[in-house]
Amino acid sequence: MFRFIRTLSVDFINLLFPTLCLGCNRSLDINEKLLCTHCRINLPETGQHRQPYDVTLLNKFGGKVPIEFVASFMYFSKAGIVQKLIHQIKYKGQKEAAKEIAEWYGSQLKAESDLIQDIDVLIGVPLHKSRQQQRGYNQADWIAEGLAEALGVPARTDLLIQKRFKESQTRKNRIERWQNVNTVFAVPNPEEIRGKTVVIVDDVLTTGATIEACAIELLQAGCKSVGVLTLAATHR
């Protein structure tokens, strides 16, 4: 009887305050989560982690820093569903969505890819303290946490820090982006990563300047190798 009443209460609440799809804003059915079935099926997944490994994203770094691998879950395009998802995650408080989607991706990686073998630790691209206080959270840390749960690999938030504030990268070109992030990051305790295989995690990979700056600091601090996983990436 109690279970029946609880079910009715949940249904009534959902009727008054329906959960909406983060992609199309349609009311979700009871068995749908975050995205409606149509949006979930039509996510522009890259499939880059599958064999043979697609090195398209690795070419973004063009030999400037020795990155072992780069893979993203989805392709990012302006006004597309992925941009809507990232906007919700970064600016609308949808941190749990970041973790959930990262778990989807982590499950694929674990089942279908050799890229994630021998990973020691996942590190989200850090935010400056003032930016994180303003936003309330770092979306990259939540993405890393979702991947960590799916992959069974620890995620750490204390191994890499942003030591000075950087401006938004959104309207900057490649050179301006690099100038904006150069010397921004630091490894406070190098002994914690020395000899380890580290994977940098972020929401969107565009030019790669921010991740490049993070990788340089980690490698100089003595980590064995650096890989990159992101929820999304631009085509170029």
Score class of each variant (00 low, 15 high):
Leu85Lys: 03
Asp118Ile: 00
Ala213Arg: 02
Leu22Ile: 01
Ala97Val: 08
Pro154Leu: 02
Lys92Gln: 15
Leu151Glu: 02
Val198Tyr: 05
Thr19Ile: 08
Gly23Ser: 01
Asp120Ser: 04
Val199Thr: 09
Asp202Thr: 14
Leu22Asp: 01
Thr46Val: 04
Gly124Arg: 12
Glu100Ile: 12
Ala98Met: 09
Leu22Arg: 04
Gly80Lys: 05
Asp54Gln: 13
Thr19Lys: 06
Leu127Asp: 05
Leu151Gln: 08
Glu100Thr: 08
Thr46Ala: 05
Thr230Ser: 08
Glu167Met: 05
Gly152Gln: 12
Lys224Leu: 00
Gly136Asp: 09
Ser130His: 12
Lys99Gln: 05
Leu159Ile: 10
Pro44Tyr: 06
Thr230Met: 08
Leu160Asn: 00
Arg156His: 08
Glu212Phe: 09
Cys214Ala: 06
Gly93Met: 10
Phe69Leu: 10
Tyr105Glu: 10
Gln83Trp: 07
Leu151Ile: 14
Ile200Ser: 00
Gly227Arg: 02
Phe17Arg: 06
Ser113Gly: 01
Lys99Tyr: 07
Cys214Trp: 00
Arg6Ala: 12
Glu100Lys: 09
Pro154Cys: 07
Ser9Cys: 13
Ile211His: 09
Phe61Trp: 02
Ala155Asp: 00
Cys36Tyr: 14
Thr207Leu: 03
Val55Ser: 12
Val201Pro: 10
Lys92Asn: 15
Glu212Met: 14
Thr210Asn: 03
Ala232Val: 03
Ala213Phe: 08
Ile116Val: 13
Ile101Glu: 09
Thr37Arg: 10
Gly152Ile: 14
Asn182Arg: 00
Thr56Leu: 14
Ser113Tyr: 02
Leu85Asp: 03
Glu103Asp: 12
Leu16Asn: 02
Met1Lys: 13
Leu22Val: 14
Leu43Gly: 10
Pro44Gly: 13
Asn42Phe: 04
Ala148His: 14
Ser107Gly: 05
Lys95Gly: 11
Ala209Trp: 00
Ile216Ser: 11
Met1Thr: 12
Ala221Ile: 04
Asp29Glu: 14
Pro18Met: 02
Cys39Phe: 01
Pro154Ala: 05
Tyr105Trp: 14
Thr230Asp: 03
Val82Pro: 11
Leu122Val: 01
Tyr137Ile: 11
Asp141Trp: 03
Phe73Arg: 10
Arg6Asp: 04
Ala71Val: 11
Pro188Gln: 00
Ala209Gly: 05
Phe69Lys: 01
Glu212His: 14
Ile200Arg: 06
Glu212Thr: 15
Met1Gln: 11
Leu35Asn: 08
Gly23Glu: 03
Glu100Ser: 01
Ile67Lys: 07
Ala102Trp: 07
Thr183Tyr: 10
Leu20Met: 03
Val199Glu: 09
Arg26Trp: 08
Asn59Met: 07
Thr183Lys: 14
Met74His: 07
Arg3Val: 13
Leu57Gly: 11
Pro44Gln: 06
Thr230Arg: 10
Ile175Gly: 09
Asn173Leu: 13
Ser225Arg: 08
Leu34Gly: 06
Arg6Cys: 07
Glu100Arg: 01
Arg50Tyr: 12
Leu8Asp: 03
Ile41Asn: 15
Phe4Pro: 13
Thr170Trp: 04
Ser168Asn: 00
Lys224Trp: 07
Asn173Met: 10
Asn138Thr: 02
Ile200Gln: 11
Gly106Tyr: 06
Ser77Phe: 13
